[in-house]
């Protein structure tokens, strides 16, 4: 099992954002987390990536307990992540940005290996031609690519993507879907949050649907979209709409 989440919960004061969350992601899988706004998707991802400390529960990465590991330790254990809000290092060039992840992402990486890994990440994310451009001069789309390239350069075993398709045009989203598949084909497990349903349909091996901080359904895209509870969570019940 590549990623295992057990009894995960997060409370903010009296508000329960996530509770009783259990799921497992196998190696090489593309795993989607969907749900209405406020369902606790991003909170879940933030707990996995270490931005938030869980109120209860346990997170394992490749059999190792990372519930209380800090950001750098999680990265060294093989967790890569691309932020929803892009945050490049503005003073560095595109290549220098990616080199940070390549040099420090996996302990014991030599300069030569890091340079190769950075070149590979740049090429795969289509940033080859921009390698010497200062990151502060990138467009939003280019920044999103840089976000993914930096995560790839850390040589992750599990890649967390938080709504990276948001704001992309359909053609760009198709390219991004291809990129994610390619990454998976090289053995990387992918966990992503997405609102764009065609992207979820095209990419996800399995889909976890969350609602009110709890797991609502888990299965293939066809299974969960046929689930009456999921339809209800997204669209509301007929009688509710009548009342409204």
């Amino acid at each position: 099992m590549m990623l295992r989440v057990q009894g995960l919960a997060k409370r903010f004061g009296g508000l329960v954002a996530v509770s009783d969350l259990d799921f497992e992601v196998t190696e090489g899988e593309i795993f989607a987390i969907i749900g209405p706004n406020g369902a606790g998707k991003t909170t879940t991802l933030n707990m996995i990536s270490g931005l938030l400390t869980p109120s209860a529960g346990r997170i394992e990465l490749a059999g190792r307990d990372i519930t209380h590991a800090n950001s750098a330790e999680r990265c060294h254990a093989g967790l890569g992540r691309a932020f929803q809000v892009v945050q490049p290092f503005p003073e560095m060039t595109v290549e220098e940005n990616v080199m940070v992840g390549a040099l420090y992402g996996a302990p014991g990486t030599s300069n030569a290996v890091a340079r190769r890994r950075a070149a590979d990440a740049l090429e795969r994310s289509g940033l080859d031609a921009l390698r010497d451009v200062p990151a502060e001069e990138l467009t939003l789309l280019q920044e999103k690519r840089l976000e993914i390239a930096r995560a790839l350069a850390t040589a992750p075993r599990v890649l967390l993507l938080d709504e990276v398709m948001a704001g992309l045009r359909p053609a760009e989203a198709r390219l991004a879907v291809g990129l994610v598949r390619e990454v998976r084909d090289q053995g990387v497990t992918v966990v992503f949050i997405e609102h764009v349903m065609p992207v979820v349909r095209d990419l996800a091996d399995r889909v976890l649907v969350m609602d009110y901080g709890r797991p609502l359904a888990l299965g293939s895209y066809a299974e969960v979209t046929a689930d009456a509870r999921v339809i209800e969570a997204y669209l509301g019940r007929d009688d509710e709409e009548d009342e409204a």
Partner: peptide, 8 residues
């Protein structure tokens, strides 16, 4: 924070 996420 981002530096730490990238392993620094």
């Amino acid at each position: 924070a981002v530096a730490a996420v990238m392993g620094v």
